[in-house]
Amino acid sequence: MSTPTTPFPGGTFTPDPGIGSRARMLAVHTRTETVLALRHSEQLLLTLVIPLALLVGLTLLRGLVALPDPRVNAALGTVLALAMMSTGFTSQAIALGFDRRYGLMRRLAATAIPRWLVVTGRLGGTAAVVVIQVVVLGGVALLLGWRPDGAAVGWALLFVVLGAAAFGACGLLLGGAVRADLVLVIANVVWFVLLFVGGIVVPAAQLPGPLGAVVALLPSGALAEGLRTVLLGGTPALSQIVVLLVWTLVAGTAAARTLRWD
């Protein structure tokens, strides 16, 4: 009966199921997420290339935007805020939207991987990209003359984590609930709008009155202002930290309720 050419020798598929180790699942999933985030050229443009160009431009071109001296410190604050928005929000939302469209969630749901681990793996991938961004942007800032001091770096890292969390929660909320093509449009428009009038490139204080007040309550405004303040040697306002925590909590809770697995 059986043809001699079958590529599947007897015993190949003898059942021997079992749940893999959680540590290995998490490691492989995080690695996959990281590799994919770095492979996507449009995402790299958002997460690394544009922040790098802006860091160099803001530092060297004095006429671009009024920034306090040393300009490189303020510029680093600006681009770190942008980088967190790119990774946590825009890139994350788009990736999640298209992963859902291509049936990834169904595929993963059919394996023994627990849902909490799928979320953790995604966060791990995001964290890896954030680390790369901080190292690359910080390194280039050093070349441009940034002289870091311990307290400023400590505060800045706290803001990076808070900002990534706030934008990450918003990204999960958008990417987990809306159609992929809509996610693409919304995530890019929001990125663009917040970049210019959300307190990132142009500080809230330089925006017209009521707009400036609103921007201080946005994650973009709070994060960029906080980062610039600490990198210029100042002490951040408690309100900036509270704004980021509230966005994380509200968007994160909403995302947990609305995230669709198909």
């Binding site: 190949t12 598929f13 021997d16 199921p17 079992g18 749940i19 893999g20 180790s21 290995r24 699942m25 490691a27 492989v28 999933h29 996959t32 590799v35 595929r107 394996t111 023994a112 991987i113």
Partner: peptide, 14 residues
């Protein structure tokens, strides 16, 4: 990469 990810969920994958 995809197959390795799914395989990592199993104890003794092919």
């Amino acid at each position: 990469e995809m197959l390795d990810l799914v395989a990592a969920c199993s104890a003794r994958p092919l």
